[in-house]
């Protein structure tokens, strides 16, 4: 295993120490595993919380900042944070206006955040939860509740983050947040697993000339294993499955994320986006906002994902509100 770490057991602690030291103008460490924006909670603003396992940099803590998340519950590599961490993160975000918890659809995250939310509601906090399930590969469209959450989480954070900044209520944010999740569809492909620092073993096995369509952020099996193919071909294949899933249609306005999974070059991602743009034009769909880069990784996994969100006017306005998060600007 080739990784720049010291001891496995110290990885998360040392990463957090470095992260807070480097970004002390924006974030602080409130509890051992809770990172917050400096000064959270904020008066007259609904609090925004996310959380989950580590290993997805710049997610999740890179999205802390004005216009996005207020606090994050940090778990171990690919493992949900415990309920106490979730409890502390939610509490740290609540100024009295309530808290919107925005998390991916993973059983450990749901269990621990769910238990923490029950405790806090019992103490009188007002809390709603939006669960992201944008990965079309992880279950058929008639079984969306079983889909995992991937890079689509970023669009949710962006939209509700802007709403909170502009003084929206918790109920409005919950309603729009659920709609953003429904409108968002993602699909990825990976040709190289990441190496699990605990065991030194790959997160999944794959041949040197193969790639897997729909592989999960933690190496969960995808829908199809195929031979490597040119960028245009795999991009067309992914786009076809994404477009029919909602379905996206002529006249739609969308946001697009082409997201690198950790070790795929930006050069390749722009080749992918070139084809995405061509297909959208062909279909009569216009791209209102485009992000190409590494936004939600799986350590050093090789591959990329595409996320499309169908935007209404309100969502478009929210998406355009500038943010100043640690790893997400503009």
């Amino acid at each position: 295993m080739k990784k720049f770490i010291n001891q496995y057991d110290d990885m998360i602690e040392e990463m957090l120490e470095g992260y807070v030291a480097a970004n002390a103008d924006l974030v602080e460490r409130r509890h051992e595993r809770v990172i917050t924006r400096v000064g959270a909670p904020f008066q007259k603003k609904v609090g925004l919380v996310t959380g989950g396992g580590s290993g997805h940099k710049p997610a999740l803590i890179g999205y802390l900042g004005e216009g996005m998340m207020d606090t994050v519950a940090v778990g171990n590599i690919f493992a949900a944070p415990g309920a106490q961490i979730c409890y502390d993160a939610i509490k740290a975000a609540d100024s009295g206006e309530g808290v919107l918890v925005c998390i991916g659809n993973y059983s450990g995250d749901l269990m621990n955040f769910g238990a923490a939310v029950d405790m806090l509601k019992d103490e009188g906090h007002k809390i709603e939860t939006v669960v992201v399930n944008d990965d079309v590969a992880s279950a058929p469209v008639d079984n969306m509740d079983n889909r995992r959450g991937v890079a689509g989480e970023i669009i949710l954070w962006k939209v509700v983050g802007a709403m909170a900044k502009q003084g929206a209520t918790l109920d409005e944010m919950k309603r729009v947040g659920d709609q953003v999740v429904f409108n968002t569809r993602s699909l990825g492909v990976a040709h190289t697993p990441c190496i699990m620092p605990s065991s030194g073993k790959p997160s999944f096995e794959i041949g040197p000339d193969e790639m897997e369509i729909g592989v999960g952020h933690h190496g969960e099996p995808g829908i199809e294993r195929v031979k490597m193919m040119p960028a245009d071909e795999i991009t067309s294949l992914l786009m076809e499955k994404i477009l029919v899933d909602l379905p996206f249609k002529s006249g739609d306005e969308v946001s697009v994320i082409v997201n690198g999974l950790g070790s795929t070059a930006l050069l390749e991602m722009y080749i992918v986006y070139r084809k995405v743009a061509e297909i959208l034009k062909e279909k009569g769909i216009s791209a209102h906002k485009i992000w190409v880069g590494e936004y939600f990784t799986s350590m050093e996994m090789g591959g990329f994902s595409i996320t499309l969100t169908q935007l209404d006017d309100g969502m478009k306005k929210a998406i355009d509100v500038p943010v100043n998060a640690v790893h997400f600007k503009g």
């Binding site: 415990g82 309920a83 106490q84 621990n112 238990a115 923490a116 405790m119």
Partner: peptide, 13 residues
């Protein structure tokens, strides 16, 4: 629930 641990904590909790 708040003591953490495996899934048994949140479930029984």
């Amino acid at each position: 629930i708040l003591s953490g641990g495996a899934a048994m904590g949140p479930l029984y909790g």
